[in-house]
Nucleic acid binder design. Structure first.
Length: 184
DNA sequence: ATGACGATTTACT
DNA sequence: GTAAATCGTCATA
């Protein structure tokens, strides 16, 4: 929700899990606890948003018990409400235009840009904050094709076995999933 | 104080 | 396909 009351929403179509102190690909690996990743140790339902590569934000939902740094990275949305506003946020950082709907939030950095998520929302309670929340839409049927389960993206540097663990899920056949790999 | 690097994206060859 | 963009964070000294 923007300050002016505009609703920006979408169906979550791609996520990855980062599992606590033993997951070498996670910011919390080895019990690392710093000002940046402090939100990972907060109560479940907390937003963990961080800045990376000098220009992008990534948004997570904390899922572990308080003190247990488990989080789910939101990697892609199928835009539903506020598509025009999302497009404006996204185009503000590109030279060339021509953005298709499927490119608005098809990646963790793109998703944050489309929803205007930044560090000001790091650590907020997703169950009470009026600006950012998650809903279960019971009127929407579960995707007919189900989910696809694969290794996570961009964690090759973490080495094995972390890099090969099947901790990424996306809606099968959904056009709004980030696509860097062939055959998905 | 310094330096290497990142849960990425974009543009260019 | 490859490389640039771009800077806060964290480990090392």
């Amino acid at each position: 929700m923007l300050d002016d009351g505009t609703r920006l929403s979408g169906l979550i179509v791609e996520v990855e899990a980062y599992l606590g102190v033993e997951d070498r690909a996670a910011h919390s690996y080895g019990g690392r606890r710093t000002p940046r990743n402090e939100a990972m140790y907060a109560a479940p339902g907390t937003a963990y948003i961080y800045f990376t590569y000098g220009m992008h934000h990534c948004a997570n939902v904390v899922c572990g018990r308080e003190g247990e740094p488990v989080a789910v990275l939101l990697r892609a949305l199928e835009p539903l409400e506020g598509v025009g506003a999302m497009r404006r946020f996204r185009e503000a950082t590109r030279r060339r235009g021509g953005l298709r709907d499927r490119d608005l939030a098809s990646g963790p950095g793109r998703l944050c840009r489309a929803l205007a998520l930044d560090l000001s929302l790091n650590g907020v309670d997703l169950t009470t904050d009026p600006r950012l929340w998650i809903e279960l839409d019971r009127s929407r049927p579960f995707p007919a094709g189900g989910l696809v389960n694969t290794p996570r993206i961009g964690v090759e540097g973490a080495g094995e076995p972390a890099a090969s663990r099947l901790l990424r899920w996306h809606v099968r056949g959904n056009a709004h999933v980030s696509r860097r790999r062939r055959g998905e």
